[in-house]
Simulated assay, not measured.
Amino acid sequence: MYRASDEVDNEAWLADLERACDRLDLPSETRSRAADLFLSTVPDGDRSKQPALAAALYVATLATGERRSQGDVADAVGVSRLSVQQRWKSLMESAGLEPPSW
């Protein structure tokens, strides 16, 4: 869970998230889920926020059935695919979601 002030503190990052969602043509449910995941687990350091944002977006695409590849999400956010790959599963589990078994 996150505080309302987290939204204000991370306004620029949430704007980046919206731009990435536009690039991926994602619906509002996926956008909202990604923002919730990001704000619930936002790291302290700015350097870690962009990869965390990408992982949150990838997990949101899986959770809402709007699957996009790790590479597509990474490109939309501006990080490496490895950044997404290293973070998505632990984020999904910490959110109480079941990772896919493929």
Rank of each mutant, 00 (worst) to 15 (best):
M1P: 09
R3K: 11
A4F: 09
S5Y: 06
V8M: 02
D9A: 13
N10V: 03
N10W: 04
E11G: 11
A12D: 14
W13E: 05
W13C: 10
L14S: 04
A15R: 11
E18I: 11
E18F: 01
C21E: 09
C21Q: 13
C21A: 10
D22K: 13
R23E: 15
L24N: 12
D25C: 11
D25A: 13
L26C: 08
P27F: 04
P27S: 12
S28G: 10
S28D: 06
S32E: 14
A34N: 08
A35N: 00
D36Q: 09
D36H: 15
L37I: 04
F38A: 07
V42P: 01
P43W: 13
D44G: 15
G45F: 02
D46I: 06
R47E: 10
S48F: 08
K49T: 01
Q50S: 10
P51F: 00
A52R: 00
L53V: 07
A55V: 07
A60N: 04
T61F: 00
T61N: 05
T61Q: 03
A63K: 03
A63T: 01
T64F: 06
R67H: 12
R68H: 09
S69N: 04
G71M: 08
D72F: 01
A74W: 02
V77P: 01
V77W: 00
R81M: 06
R87T: 06
R87V: 06
K89I: 14
M92D: 06
E93H: 04
S94I: 12
A95C: 12
G96N: 13
S101A: 09
S101T: 07
W102P: 15
